[in-house]
Structures are given as structure tokens and as C-alpha cells.
Design a protein around this nucleic acid. Structure first.
Lengths: 236, 236, 236, 236
DNA sequence: TATGAATGAGTCTTCATTCAT
DNA sequence: GATGAATGAAGACTCATTCAT
């Protein structure tokens, strides 16, 4: 079922007609998929939440899988449209740019449309490889480029000192990605919620401290203390 | 029915020691759950992979959900047994400690038993709240404590300068957690695989640069450049 | 799988009016439950008998138990609607009233809808306590009230002489109940069927002789003949 | 499964060896079958209650059905051994004989071994036709003969006046049977329990009044009041 | 376009029965 | 005789999908 090869002709099936009905279905589906995952979300639940009958969903979407893909694509629209042009016109401080990066990422990802999507894609990555690839190619690479742009901005202004641009960008991008996943998987169940704004500030600050530190760091030679860490030998 | 005649060779399968049977089931279940998630994994698939009949699974596990929980618990056992005692004995440099932290985390999480579990728990968090809480309380909090221990070690030796211990520890812990999730959700589908060892080195280095940077960082006052980032106005 | 190709002719089965569908299911279920009991009746058998697919049953009934309860309730509806109003209008002889009672009970219980239900409820009483209570409260109590009404009618007309109204009513009600149970449990297997009409006449006659007998009867003092009956001493 | 014809060779399989083990199994099985019926009673439950392993049951009984039949047969042993010889030596009053009949029946049927069996046989009659026939031939006919003997005793002494011996005996036998079925199906769930001793006394008294009433009773001619009873026309 | 009753293949789960020990 | 782990066929129930209206 999953990943059947005969979808070549509907590559853009998620560009659904702009009527109200499919929007409601998409909205309902997004919420349910994000909350419960693909398999656990039943088409009947989506229909009920959207205020339509199950059959109606199949008027707009070929099947549940197509609906799922449409949900992801629709949710990623805002992100895909988020251009990195702004970097070309940005003239502020490198430090401030980091704070903007973290807070804007959060604002973007937690906008009503795509909140929870990163977690959802993460969860279903193995079952929807093509969707995952789309997500990686479009969203993650896009995000990484923006981070790279930020780093280059700081490097150019001699504010940032980066040994390995690719991996540094990945580290930062992953940190940003992680927080959105965490928020939807764990924080909602935590006894005391994370203060996101504070977290984002600290994250930017953490980034800045690292990037503005001009001293290169090499891994020390491995010493005998490594064994101290490895206590696995006494596990069954 | 159709497939029944070709079972003549498994007539003595159940002769194996009874102790190993649940282990085999657990192993098969772990792999399948990690690969496909809870709902998409069928009990019959687990049975087949474990080389038993579907009914046998229910000799050892009350139901599919119990099997799932057993998988998570069993996988997390090595991690939970990984104590932070080593910090008390550790006498090396703060810098080296960071490298140990990242590499040991990876080694621990990617050991055969629990590879992919973080991703799995992340994915099913909403469907298994109690399991998620167990994971948060045991694994994440445990991991955070170790990170805090590392930070305190460096602070005490005057190598690290940390404004907010809690959030700094979270940031680092999340970074570590993220790579295990990323490895199982995305990296396996990536065209060019991430060089994990290099990534871990860079991550430790990134941590070190930030932590060893004594200059406090505050968020700059918000300026007009914020709007430049926000391009959301042209979305629905 | 093997049987799938021979369904081409039922393609339009579901075109029948939706109102009749649950009725057909109920009818099929009633017959099977009465014949075989709850556990021995398989949902698939009900579906087949009703001319629907197994899944269709779950469109109308939450589960097998709900279907069972619906069967009992639907079957008892006619009985519950059978009011005892007629007693208020009845002006005939007390004797005739007894004949009416027995024959009407039989006619009512053996009407298509509820034939065999008393036996079924009797059989499943332990497994469905709430249903049994419903049956007791509604059907048995109802029946007993009618019998009590009959007795009171005769007493008032000085035709009947009853020492203990409650127990006399129970005795008669039980006799009536018994024949419906007997008919469905045993008589169908008997070599020579019971002549029900004759039996009912004799039962009414038996009732009448007892009720019209004005001589009180007390239990004689226990004598030595009791031991003569008890031959249990030679059992384990 | 039920009623397979290849049991001809084990017609007396219930004459089980007199060891302790099968007795315990039989005892446990009897209680569970009586409480829950055949299908709802699981072999594993019987094993657990008997303090043995499931496999052990199959050492003594060919299968679940054989166990069931053994239960019924063993439980009926006391009844089958209950001879009607006592009638030949009975010299007391006819009235007292009726009281003995009712109370002895109850004592016999409610002895530990066979309490609840009538209800069980009633419930499973359709699924075990041969068992039902055995029960009818042995127990019910046996009981009816005793009742007939009682009636003949009274007739001979000119105390009883019976128009139709067969049906009168059936009526009385059914009344006795009914009370044992009722006790196990309904009375245990009733808010206020039936006072059995009182009921039995009243039943004997009811019998006596009827039997000692010398006036023949014929059914009156049907009159117009019959329609008054029939209110079925206003049911759907 | 929208419906919603019906489907029927598929899933989880049960449990009577077996058999090597 | 007794075990009890393993079986595997069968049953209750689900749900994505269809299609006549």
C-alpha cells in the first residue's frame, strides 16, 4: 500500500482546488495526523472533524496516503515560501541575526499550518520515503541554506569563526529542528513546560558564544579516561 | 491456508529453550517497530520475523501494546544502567569531557539494543503518554543530569562559563538526542550519509567554544530588521 | 481469497432499503442465538444468514454483545406491550380466565418474534447479568403481575381460594415459563412431541382444580418414611 | 466439532478412573460449566481451578466436549441411582407423599454434585443433542416415572383424582424441574431471594389441592372475551 | 458534488489441542 | 502420568474504500 509506484501522474495532487471543503478536510487531517500519526488516524475521524462524510474525502484525495502527502505539502508551503532573500538586505549585527534566526524559525514552524509537521515527518519517515526525501530536500536543505547564509554573514563581518561551515550549519539547523519536534512529542506531557522564549534566547546565545569564539578546538588525544565512561561491559 | 503445507520443517521450532523465545520476539519486534512504527507493524510480521506463530507472542506479552512497551523498556535498560558515576572519578580536561560525552552518547544509543528507539518514542509519544513519560523521566532526565554533571565539572574547573545551567544542559541534551533521531529518520534516506564521527567532533567542539566563552551574551534590542525576515504575509 | 471470485452476483445487495437491514440482521441473530446460544453463534454466521457481510453488522450494532441485547429487547417488546388492561374489562368466568391465561401466554411467547428467548436468557443468565435483570424485572415480573391479577379476579368472585398469593402466582408463572423453555430445549428433540394445546388445557385445569379447592393444606408432620426416599447413602 | 459421530467407542468415557486427579478436574469443570456455560468456559480455566496444567485434562478426557459430557453424566449419577423402589414400600398418606416428592427432588438436585446441571443441559440442548436425549431419557423420564408412581399411589388410595395421568405427571415434573433451573438462572440475581422451603411447601400444597379435587374441569367454550386478551394487532 | 451504507480484506487476539520432555 | 510451551485455525472487530443515489 504504502509507496505504491503508480503516483507519477499526480505529483501535484496536493495543489488541491481552492474550495472551502478541501481546506476543511486538510485542516482536520493535519491536526489528527500530527496528534496521532498516520496509521492511528482514521479517515472517518478526519471526515467527522471536517464535518463531511467519509466518501467526500475521496472526491478530493485519491486515498489516505494522498491526503497525508497533501497535508505535509500544504503545511510546508509557508516554509518553502520563506525566502532567504532577506539576508541579502540584512544589515544588522551578526549577534542579532542569530536571535532572529531562532525566533523566526520557531514562529514559522509553530504557525498554525505547520505546527507538529516536523515531528510527523520524523515519525513516518520510513513509511513515506518519497515524502521524507521531499522534506529533506526542500525543508531541511532550505533551512540549512538559511543557516549557512547567517553564518556567512557573520564570517564576512568577521564576527563568526567557523571551522566547518557545513557541519556547523547542520548542528544549528538540527537544534532548531529538534526544538519543534520536542515541543510536540514531549513538552506537552512535561510537568513543567519549557519556557520557549527563554530557551530560544539561550539557544541563540549559545550559538553566538560558539561562533564568536575565535579559538579553534581540536579533539584531545584519547586518554585512559575513556574506559571510565564505558560501563557497558556489565550489561547483560 | 494456502501456505500451510510448507511448514513441515518447523515442526520442532518450539523445542528451543523457553528463555530465548521472548528474547527473539523482543528482538524482532524492536526492529520492526523502529522501522515502521507501532501501528504499521503487524503482530504477524513480528511472529514471522521471530520464527514463531502469532499465538506464541501472546504467551509472553498480553497484547501488542504490552509488547511495544516491553520493547522500549528493554531497549532503554542499557541506558538506564549507564550511570553518571564516572563523573566522580573523571579527572581529565573539561574539553575532553565534552568529546567523551558526545561520542559515548552515540555509542550507547546506537548499540544494537536501542538504536532507533528515540525516534520511535518521539513518533508514538501522543499514542503512548505513559511510555513517553517513562522515557522522559528516565532517559531524558538521566541524560540531562549527565550533561549537567559535565557542565558543573567544567564550571568548577573554571573552564566553562554558563549563564543558565538548566537550559544549557537541555540544549546540549537535545542536540545529542536529535542526532539519534535524525540518523534513523533522515540520514538513512540521504544521498550522502553524514559523517557521524566528524559531526560528533564538531558538535563537541561547538559546545566547547560556547561553554568556554566567558563573555555573556544578551539579546539585542529588537530593531526594524525583524520584518525583513517575516514573509508570511503572502500566505493564506 | 480463494472464494472471492464468486461474489459477482451480490454486487447490488446493499441497495436494499437501509431501514430493513438492521431488521434482517436482528432476525437472523435471533434465530441463531436461540438455536445455539451466544458463544456458539458466530458473527459471520449471523451475517451470512442475514445476507450481509460481517462488517455490516457493526454498522448497526457496536459489538456482538450489543447485538445480543438488541435481540432480547426486540423480542420482548411484544410481551412488554401486552398489557394487563384486559383484566379490568374481563367479565367472564374465573375458570375461563385460567384457560385464557395459559393459551394466551403460549400464543404470545411463541409468536415469531420471541420464541426461544426465555430459554436463551435462561442459558446466558450468568454471562449477562444486566440482561437477566432486565428480563426478570420486565418479563417475569410482568407475567407474575398478570397471574396475580387473574388470581385476584377469582378470589374476588369467590371462585379461587389462595393461601399465599405471591407464591401461588410464582408457581403458575413458573409453569407457564417452563413450557416455553421446555419446548425449545427438549421437545424439539423428543421422539413424540408434546401436544401443547392439550397440555395447556390440562395445565389450566390443574390450576383451576387447585385454586377452586377451598380446603387449606398443611404439610404433615415428618414421619419415618422420609428415609425411604433417601437412597443417596451409596453415592461417593 | 460439536456432535461428531466418531464417539461410538467411548460411550462410557465418563466412567473415569477413580483417581483423585480426574475428580478434581470434574469438580472444577462442573462448577465452571454450570456458572458460565460450555463455550464460555475455557479449558485453561478448568485446569487452573483443578490445580493442574491444561495438558493434564487431555490425559483423562479426549477433548472439551468429552469433559462436558462426563460432567453431565457424573452429576446425574445420584439422580439415576435414585430409585423409585421406595414407592413400593411407602405406606404413608398421599398428601405427605407430595411433600416428600417436592422436598426430596430439591434435596437431590441441589446436592453438591448436580446443582445447576438442569439449567446447563437446558442451555446447551441444541449443541449437544445426544446429551440432551440422554438427559431426557434418563433424568426427565425417570423423574416423570416417580411422579407417576406418586400419582398412582394417591389414585389407588382414592385420594387423588387425575384425568390425564401422563400430562399431570409432566406438569408436576416440569414444575419441579423449573424450580431448579430458576434457582440457578434467576434467583441468584434477584433482589430478594425466594424462600425455597416455603415455595416447595406451597408447591406440594398446590399439587395436593389439585389432585385431591374430585371435580373434573373442562375448558369452557370460547367466548368473545378471547379477543380482549389478544392485543397483538397493534404491534409493529 | 456529496453522500453514507456497505464492503471485505486484514488485524489482533483467543484457546482447544498437541507433544517432546 | 504430568507438563506447559507452542500451536494455528478461527473469531471478533476495524476501517480504507467504493458506488448507487
Amino acid at each position: 500500500m504504502i509507496e505504491s509506484p503508480n503516483h507519477s501522474e499526480n505529483k501535484r495532487f496536493w495543489k488541491r482546488k481552492k474550495e472551502v471543503r478541501p481546506q476543511e478536510i486538510l485542516k482536520a487531517a493535519t491536526e489528527l495526523f500530527v496528534e496521532q500519526g498516520f496509521s492511528a488516524t482514521k479517515v472517518a475521524m478526519v471526515a467527522k472533524k471536517a464535518g463531511v462524510q467519509p466518501g467526500t474525502i475521496y472526491v478530493y484525495y485519491e486515498n489516505k496516503e494522498a491526503l497525508f502527502k497533501a497535508v505535509i505539502h500544504a503545511a510546508m508551503d509557508p516554509v518553502l515560501q520563506y525566502s532567504n532573500d532577506f539576508l541579502k538586505q540584512y544589515t544588522g549585527s551578526s549577534k542579532n541575526l542569530l536571535f532572529e534566526l531562532t525566533h523566526q524559525w520557531w514562529k514559522l514552524m509553530e504557525s498554525e499550518a505547520c505546527a507538529g509537521i516536523p515531528k510527523l515527518v520524523t515519525a513516518e519517515s520510513k513509511n513515506f520515503p518519497d515524502l521524507t526525501r521531499f522534506y529533506m530536500d526542500q525543508v531541511l536543505v532550505h533551512a540549512k541554506r538559511i543557516v549557512e547564509g547567517v553564518l556567512e554573514y557573520g564570517i564576512q563581518k568577521n564576527d563568526f569563526f567557523v571551522e566547518n561551515l557545513d557541519i556547523s550549519a547542520r548542528i544549528m539547523m538540527h537544534s532548531l529542528h529538534e526544538i519543534t519536534v520536542y515541543a510536540h512529542s514531549f513538552d506537552s506531557l512535561a510537568d513543567e513546560k519549557l519556557d520557549i522564549e527563554l530557551y530560544l534566547d539561550q539557544l541563540a546565545s549559545f550559538f553566538y558564544k560558539s561562533l564568536s569564539n575565535p579559538h579553534p578546538v581540536d579533539r584531545p588525544l584519547k586518554g585512559p579516561e575513556i574506559q571510565a565512561l564505558n560501563t557497558e561491559e556489565n550489561h547483560q
